[in-house]
Design a protein around this nucleic acid. Structure first.
Ligand SMILES: [Mn+2]
Ligand SMILES: [Mn+2]
Ligand SMILES: [Zn+2]
Ligand SMILES: [Zn+2]
Lengths: 143, 143
DNA sequence: AGGTGATGGATAATTGTTTTCAGTAGAAAA
DNA sequence: TTTTCTACTGAAAACAATTATCCATCACCT
């Protein structure tokens, strides 16, 4: 179900933060790793139940919280107010969400840190974090 | 309660989209105009009831939806998943949210449009919109 | 002023998320 | 291994946020 290498790597990430490495958490992670789209909680729940049928919905919520804490998963804020989740990109990247097919394409580092510095100077606000998402139409959906 | 000039201007904005200009909608708008912070639905409701005591919570939801539709108000997505609302900035600007006092400071246009173009070329995705919020500590809260 | 349909208020219903709690099973020690 | 200790889980209830329903009313057009 999970590759050995990845499993060991992931396992130590859990342990480093004092979390237990449970099948449910790994299943949630796997479901997100296996898709390039963001997924709603309910979709994740359904997919997790395909290999762990007894998994409860609350566990999916709890697992996602843990995975976000570990920076393995990121929360996507959608226009309508609902939230979804997607596997975290490598390094500091931002998601581009296809509004047609829900696929998430990442884009490479963005000079937001430099600009944050300048905005700090201009406004006097100490910028701590930023939240950026782009929306558009992916290659496939343009055809 | 509302200045005449603004009222007329606003009134025609409602009518242009086929909305009626009601005291409740104007009250919600006024509450947001009178603060520099983003406000939760419940806070808005409380403030609206100060001058329109019978206003129901559902009406606040409905009014906000209308005002967002008219681009007079924007929705702020918060880390914890909750949403709040703030008066829409002039032109295309982005909010900086103070994580200490909830105040919203805007910052001037940001070269996202140019970068969107480049990202479009790099990734093949046709960027349509973006969503950017910065979080930090405002001048006052740093003291 | 009168007619009409959009809107508001009250309330119920839904939906999304969190909490509670008793039982289970990771992980570390023995 | 076996034991021990908790963090974790599933199920259900509780809670919070949002939306739908209903009918009376009000904004606005003529
Ligand atoms: Mn959001
Ligand atoms: Mn912008
Ligand atoms: Zn697409
Ligand atoms: Zn502040």
């Amino acid at each position: 179900m999970f590759s050995v290498e990845k499993s060991k790597e992931i396992k130590s990430m859990f342990h480093d933060k004092g979390f237990k490495c449970t099948p449910q958490r790994l299943a949630v992670l796997k479901v997100l790793q296996d898709t390039s789209a963001y997924l709603s909680i309910n979709t994740i729940h359904l997919k997790v139940k395909e290999f762990l049928p007894d998994t409860g919905l609350a566990t999916v919520y709890r697992s996602l919280e843990t995975l976000v804490d570990l920076n393995l998963v990121v929360k996507v804020h959608l226009e309508d107010g609902c939230h979804s989740y997607v596997i975290a990109p490598e390094g500091h990247r931002h998601p581009i969400v296809c509004t047609d097919c829900n696929k998430v394409i990442e884009f490479a580092e963005f000079p937001l840190d430099d600009l944050s510095k300048q905005i700090s100077e201009d406004t006097g606000v100490q910028i701590k974090t930023h939240f950026l998402q782009l929306f558009g139409k992916c290659k496939e959906c343009q055809a």
